[in-house]
Nucleic acid binder design. Structure first.
Length: 887
RNA sequence: GCGCGAUUAGCUCAGUGGUAGAGCAAUGCCUUGACAUGGCAGAGGUCACAAGUUCAAAUCUUGUAUUGCGCACCA
């Protein structure tokens, strides 16, 4: 055996095993397998994306599930891929184009620009995939999909055509969320409202028929004043009732506009009079429809003012124009006051600028299968975990509006609609397009272009990225694959995309596969920094997982993050967690290294069977505990309690295996030990460790594979990751042995306490004297001494001098003769403190036992336990008092 | 305004009715043949507050406070 380094060095090991798994196709899913199928589709990261901690958490959980399912003998498909991410990707390439060539996408033209995006994708698109591999993800990489693969795209178009033919997709001029930077419409879900400090402008419009009289109006958006077509008041508002039906003067461009009454107006807000700009506000638009008002659009698509009648405002950016318009009002003497005001402003999720409500011609979808989707989640046909997210899902389902699916972008799935050339202009301008128009033969909808393509013009828009993502669970699979792996088993994703993705996938599953797309949805935590802030690039509080893996290893990162990731709440990330993961890997490595120092086993996958009659208590105890561990892990997995699983794995190795078992059997591995003792201990070590590595494998795949191989727990040429998890326990254990072990560990603890209390920890010549011990203890006194750090003398004839520090244990009374080693004064005050504490405990017990209600109604065993406890404490009290007197 | 969470040790969090737990940080001791990325020990909690149910409440109920998230409103 070669000299092993003292600390585990993960980098080379992780690389080695990952390539080895790939070479041997360990991640390959066979759709013709006889085994039970298990499948997960990855939430496809943006093709432009780079790995962040959210991905690490999410994909580690998926990897754990996948690896665990393989160990359970299932045929596992973890299907990976990436999303074309329309806006994000296009923006990135446009930026590069602007910076490097000073060109816009229009300078290149659609076709050339798309070529550039594909080039970019080929060059930079694989980064996150490489990073996932680095993390150890066991995806079937041969099946990697992209949402713009040809066959995938064809399915997106098919679905569009189907929904169009069913009358669920329509085109129309509606108020949409417009992003003035990306120059496209957005869905409601892509708008994030943020509280913003803004100003509320109070101004006055002169009444036409009574010059010199004014109506006061408040607004946050004076720059849209040119689009005002009315002023509305609440019909119940007594102040204004007599004004309804009269007219006021809009100052610029000058016009007379009516005062109307509408219930929407809040009497309490501002002056109670609302200027109506149907082109630039959703509510105003609706009021406009109700009152048949004109729509005057005074903004260009990019958010600059479009009002040639006001040359001083025309062409200005909307925020510049806001100040300018206010200044103009002031000049005209129409501005009354300006108040500071906090309101919510809708922001574009991608571009992070305020969106502009804008009327434009777009494609919309009436959501299909909404009823089934709501029921599936509410009734648990699809299990949301944690379950409370089902309510969020339900809320959204209750008030969904039609989905604006068209985007004014180039990168994406182009709308599969063609217009007959000579009619195109007319059709494109039409207020709506429905099935009837299509039947007229002027419009064609389908996945394949029309055969006489030259006569047709294609709709220029592309679809919302999520319109392709919602097909992901089945559009990524062939017929045969779907037969084996659809519906998928688990979906792991963030609760922030319940609306964007999860709910829509369920609708798509029902609509196009007549089935749910997945059985369970596990929602991960959101990762925040230690101060509770969201991770973001601009805050610089988002550590690069690759750096963390360089420093702590992928296994360390995985374990550290998973062990503390709470099920329901957010994770507060701290690098110290990852360091703990690394330390844990090191602890495991060193435990095995210790074993190897006693000789490398030549097992080649054959871990020796254990013979129960040869086991000493410590052996039996750890064998018993690995059995319990397996059972308890099963329970935690069943509830998707990944932090629990991690914690149990951690505690077993550290507290049980290393701190107790290894310390207890250390003597067996010394040169002075008998061959018998050594053999049993090594056999137990191997039996327990080989099983443990298997249990830990889903969390720390690399190191467990490495150690299993190095220790010979897996036959050479085979892999731990492919080894089925046995259901049987290693060996049936008689509880009297584990009880003995418990007693000895507890007793050793009491002895160490005594030593520490009397400050003799540093002395190596400590002697403990025991009386009233059971016979079997004599055999174990060497181990007890080892654990306690002192010599154990069993002397039933011993009569302790009054005041000798003592402890009552399961296995007799322990005395620690001090022989005048301690500082008398310090000892006195320590004892006094101790006595006070114990007196309190005794009184607590007395209080309970003196309570007749407790004694009468509590279960008998509870009362008995309380009595025993009182007895224990009062004995301790007497002992302490004696010690105090003896000093 | 509606909904969903959270509040336990200095910090991050476990803990679903029966003696308050872990890791980290801080303290003391230990470089003992696996590991200082380590070992042992001690200290540190009116479990946010109030009322209720119960023999018994961190845990169940109700209310309050603080705080986070989502939805709606947002002139």
């Amino acid at each position: 055996m070669s000299e092993l380094p003292k600390a585990y060095e993960p980098q080379e090991v992780e690389k080695k095993w990952y390539s080895s798994w790939l070479e041997n196709q360990c991640f390959h899913a066979d759709e013709s397998s006889e085994k039970e199928g298990y499948s997960i589709v990855i939430p496809p990261p943006n093709v432009t994306g780079i790995l962040h901690l959210g991905h690490v958490l999410n994909n580690t959980i998926q990897d754990i599930l996948a690896r665990r399912a393989r160990q359970q003998g299932k045929e596992v498909l973890w299907l990976p891929g990436t999303d074309h991410a329309g806006i994000a990707t296009q923006t990135k390439v446009e930026k590069q184009l602007r910076e490097e060539e000073g060109k816009t996408r229009r300078d290149l033209g659609r076709e050339e620009f798309l070529n550039r995006v594909w080039d970019w994708k080929d060059k930079h698109g694989g980064i996150i995939i490489k990073q996932l591999k680095r993390l150890g993800c066991s995806c079937d990489w041969e099946r990697e999909r992209f949402t713009m693969d040809a066959d995938y795209s064809a399915q997106v178009s098919d679905v569009f055509a189907k929904l169009f033919n069913d009358g669920l997709i329509y085109r129309g001029k509606r108020m949409v969320n417009w992003c003035p930077v990306s120059l496209t419409a957005l869905s409601d879900e892509e708008v994030i409202s943020k509280p913003r400090q803004s100003k509320l402008y109070f101004m006055k419009y002169e009444l036409v028929d009574t010059p010199g009289e004014y109506l006061e109006i408040s607004t946050t958006r004076p720059e849209t004043l040119m689009g005002d077509v009315a002023v509305a008041v609440n019909p119940k508002d007594e102040r204004y009732q007599k004004l309804v039906g009269r007219r006021v003067r809009r100052p610029f461009p000058a016009a007379e506009i009516p005062i109307i009454a509408d219930d929407h107006v809040d009497v309490e807000f501002g002056t109670g009079a609302l200027k109506i700009t149907p082109a630039h506000d959703k509510a105003d638009f609706e009021i406009g429809v109700r009152h048949d008002l004109e729509i005057i659009d005074v903004l260009h698509a990019d958010g600059t003012v479009n009002c040639p009648d006001c040359p001083d405002l025309d062409g200005l950016d909307r925020f510049v124009a806001r100040k300018k318009a206010a200044a103009k009002l002031e000049e005209l003497g129409l501005l009354i006051k300006v108040e500071e005001y906090e309101n919510n402003v809708g922001y574009s999720e991608r571009a992070d600028v305020p969106i502009e409500p804008r009327i434009s011609m777009q494609w919309f979808l009436k959501y299909p299968s909404t009823e089934k989707t709501a029921v599936a989640v509410a009734d648990g046909g699809i299990q949301y975990r944690p379950a409370r997210w089902a309510k969020t899902h339900a809320n959204w389902m209750e008030n969904i509006q039609d989905w604006c699916i068209s985007r004014q972008l180039w990168w994406g799935h182009q709308i599969p609609v063609w217009y007959r050339k000579e009619k195109a202009a007319e059709l494109l301008a039409a207020e709506s397009l429905d099935v009837a128009d299509m039947q007229a033969g002027d419009i064609y909808v389908g996945a394949e272009p029309p055969s006489d393509l030259a006569n047709w013009v294609r709709d220029e828009d592309v679809m919302d990225t999520w319109f392709s993502s919602w097909l992901w669970p089945f559009a990524t699979m062939s017929e045969a694959e779907q037969k084996k792996f659809y519906p998928t088993t688990d979906l792991v994703t963030g609760p922030d995309i319940i609306f964007f993705w999860v709910a829509r996938m369920i609708m798509a599953g029902f609509s196009f596969k007549s089935e749910i797309p997945f059985k369970n949805v596990f929602f991960t935590s959101i990762i925040r920094d230690i101060q509770g802030r969201k991770m973001s690039k601009s805050l610089g509080n988002s550590p690069d997982p690759i750096d963390l893996m360089d420093e702590y290893g992928a296994d360390g990162l995985r374990f550290g993050l998973l062990r503390t990731a709470p099920v329901g709440a957010d994770v507060r990330f701290d690098e110290a967690l990852v360091a703990e993961g690394r330390n844990f890997a090191n602890k495991l490595y060193n435990a095995c290294r210790f074993r190897q120092m006693a000789g490398s086993p030549a097992l080649d996958g054959q871990v020796p069977l254990l013979e129960v009659e040869r086991l000493r208590p410590y052996h039996a105890d750890i064998v018993h505990k690995i059995g319990s561990l397996a059972v308890n892990l099963e329970k935690s997995y069943a509830d998707y309690r990944f932090n629990d699983v991690g914690q149990q794995l951690y505690d077993f190795l550290w507290s049980e295996f290393c701190d107790k078992f290894l310390e207890a059997v250390k003597g067996d591995l010394r040169d002075s030990a008998t061959a018998e003792a050594r053999d049993v201990t090594l056999a137990v070590f191997d039996a327990v460790m080989s099983r443990y590595l298997q249990l830990l494998h889903p969390y720390m795949p690399h190191i467990t594979e490495e150690l299993s191989s190095r220790m010979g727990y897996v036959k050479s040429g085979e892999f731990l990751m492919e080894k089925p998890l046995p259901s049987e326990v290693l060996i049936e254990i008689d509880s009297h042995l584990t009880n003995q072990a418990d007693s000895i560990y507890a007793t050793a603890g009491r002895m160490r306490n005594l030593k520490a209390e009397y400050n003799v920890a540093a002395r190596k010549d400590v002697k403990f004297i025991m009386i009233k011990s059971p016979v079997w203890l004599a055999q174990e006194s060497d181990v007890l001494g080892l654990l306690a750090g002192g010599e154990i003398l069993i002397q039933d004839s011993y009569e302790a001098p009054k005041g000798t520090p003592a402890a009552v244990t399961d296995v007799g009374e322990v005395y620690l003769p001090l022989e005048g080693l301690v500082d008398i004064e310090a000892e006195k005050s320590r004892l006094d403190k101790e006595i006070t504490k114990v007196e309190i405990e005794v009184r607590k017990c007395d209080g309970k036992l003196g309570n007749s209600a407790f004694v009468d109604k509590a279960p008998v065993e509870l009362v008995e336990r309380e009595k025993a406890r009182r007895e224990e404490w009062s004995q301790k009290l007497v002992q302490l008092q004696e010690m105090r007197e003896a000093l």
